[in-house]
């Protein structure tokens, strides 16, 4: 093994005339947690599906767990845990029945014990007789994670696992992800949540099927070349319209009560903002751009 759990180059997928994934390179070292970000329809799900053999790639080479991802998808499936974006377990089976089914299909040894352990680990033991269809979003997601882990995969591919899940459940979920990663599991997880992106070792941002940014959170922020100023105070609400379209201002947005103003041309931005300095009820400070600033900027540039 190369020490890379995923190592693919030029990954490409077309749907008719549309390039859904356009020559993406991804190299995920074993044991890391990578965040996969990008707007809706950018190609995240398609990429994940190609990696686990659910879609045939139109182009690209490489390996997944040391196996050719184009020709050895059967062997890859046995070692990968894939969690679909939409809950895809059998709603008319109980949690336990779902897990036992999965354990049997994968030929997990000591299946019953393994199911017991997994239920225990994810706190599902008390609910094991409940039908999956009657669970709330958070519990469904927990059950799905349990099912992906049953066969001791080496790689987890999680497609927006926390969409529509409450904050507490989300945090518990991420604690579990980190615990698994500490045990040596490699995780590729797609998400729209910035706080989740910040929990990842590295993030990859794709847009219209192209990889446009990758690195650790601070690297991605640095690479963006963005300057951000924060305006705070009682009257900032009225300033956003005034600022929009001014020289040097690429993006204006509220973060809570504060107004973030970002731009690539720092000099022009400072000059524009100079006019707002000293206005009554407005405090102006430079700040580190947040990941969200960077992503919105990236998405805006593509338009």
């Amino acid at each position: 093994m190369s020490g890379l759990a995923i190592d693919v180059k030029g990954l490409t997928k077309r749907f008719g005339a549309k390039l859904a994934v356009d020559h993406i390179d991804i190299a995920v070292p074993e044991g890391q947690v990578w965040g996969f970000l990008g707007p809706n329809g950018s190609g995240k799900t398609t990429t994940i599906r190609m990696l686990c053999g659910l879609l045939n790639a139109d182009d690209g080479q490489g390996t997944c767990l040391g196996l050719d991802f184009r020709t050895q998808s059967d062997a890859i499936k046995r070692q990968v845990g894939y969690m679909t974006q939409k809950f895809s377990f059998w709603e008319d089976l109980s949690i336990r029945e779902n897990l036992e089914f999965v354990a049997r299909v994968y030929g997990v040894r000591n299946g019953r014990r393994r199911v017991d352990d997994t239920l225990e680990r994810l706190g599902l033991t008390a609910r094991q007789r409940q039908l999956a269809g009657q669970l709330s979003g958070g519990w469904k997601q927990r059950m799905a994670l349990a099912a992906c882990m049953l066969h001791d995969p080496k790689l987890l591919l999680l497609d927006e696992p926390t969409a529509g899940v409450d904050p507490k459940a989300r945090r518990d979920f991420w604690e579990e992800i980190h615990a698994l990663s500490a045990e040596g599991l490699t995780v590729l997880v797609s998400t729209h949540y910035m706080d989740e992106a910040e929990r990842c070792d590295r993030i990859v941002y794709i847009l219209n099927g192209k990889l446009v940014a990758s690195g650790s959170v601070s690297e991605v922020i640095e690479q963006s070349g963005l300057s951000t100023f924060v305006l705070e105070g009682q009257d900032v609400r009225h300033l956003s319209e005034e600022l929009r379209g001014q020289p040097g201002v690429d993006y204006v947005g509220f973060f809570g009560a504060a107004l973030h103003v970002s731009g690539h041309d720092r000099a022009a931005l400072e000059q524009t903002l100079a006019g707002f300095r000293g206005r009554p009820g407005v405090a102006l400070n430079e700040a580190q751009p947040s990941l969200e600033d960077v992503f919105i900027d990236l998405q805006g540039k593509a338009r």
Partner: peptide, 13 residues
């Protein structure tokens, strides 16, 4: 129709 097909395909059957 229920969306469980994707899961079934992702398994080694």
């Amino acid at each position: 129709e229920r969306g469980t097909y994707e899961n079934l395909l992702a398994m080694p059957a």
